[in-house]
């Protein structure tokens, strides 16, 4: 009996926390990490070899005698909390009081190649990781 009280209390707290809660995530392409590009040897590795391992670049541009290949991937996290749901416990009417936040991380890897499509150099773009829960919009 005593053991059931904390259990019920935990369930009640969990219920209050989760009520009106929404979590959304959008992933675009598989993230590329520094370890994943260690095989690239500038002056030796070809763009085709890179593409076979990492997938096709999202963008390709010709700049003077260089080919720029841009690989992009992103993670978008969004969370919302509708505090109005809590009124359902005490009121027949539940107003909408939603706090929500969205964090979009767009990351990229830029590879420069010569005209023969042999890699000259590569660099990662800088992106800061957003928090998983971003309810607080202020």
């Amino acid at each position: 009996m005593i053991g059931r009280v904390p259990c019920a209390l935990a369930l009640l707290i969990l219920n209050v926390i989760l009520v009106g809660c929404g979590v959304r995530r959008v992933d675009f392409n598989t993230p590329i990490h520094a370890q994943g590009v260690e095989f690239i040897r500038p002056g030796e590795t070809t763009l085709q070899q890179v593409v076979e391992r990492l997938g096709g670049p999202e963008d390709l541009n010709l700049v003077s005698d260089e080919v720029l290949a841009e690989f992009r991937w992103s993670t978008t996290r969004s969370a919302s909390l509708n505090l109005g749901y809590l009124f359902r416990f005490i009121s027949p009417v539940s107003p909408s009081m939603t706090m929500s936040g969205t964090g979009i991380n767009i990351e990229r890897l830029l590879i420069t190649c010569d005209k023969q499509l042999v890699v000259r150099s590569y660099a990662f773009g800088k992106a800061e990781e957003h928090a998983f829960f971003e309810f607080w919009p202020f």
């Binding site: 989760l18 009520v19 009106g20 929404g22 995530r25 959008v26 992933d27 997938g55 999202e58 749901y85």
Partner: peptide
């Protein structure tokens, strides 16, 4: 009261390089 949503997107890309005579290079 509690919703979870996920969207997973992936892409295929093909680039065909053509020289000044319009012949496939790469």
């Amino acid at each position: 009261v509690f919703n979870i949503f996920s969207l997973n997107i992936k892409s295929d890309n093909l680039y065909v390089f053509l020289d000044k005579h319009g012949i496939t290079q790469d």
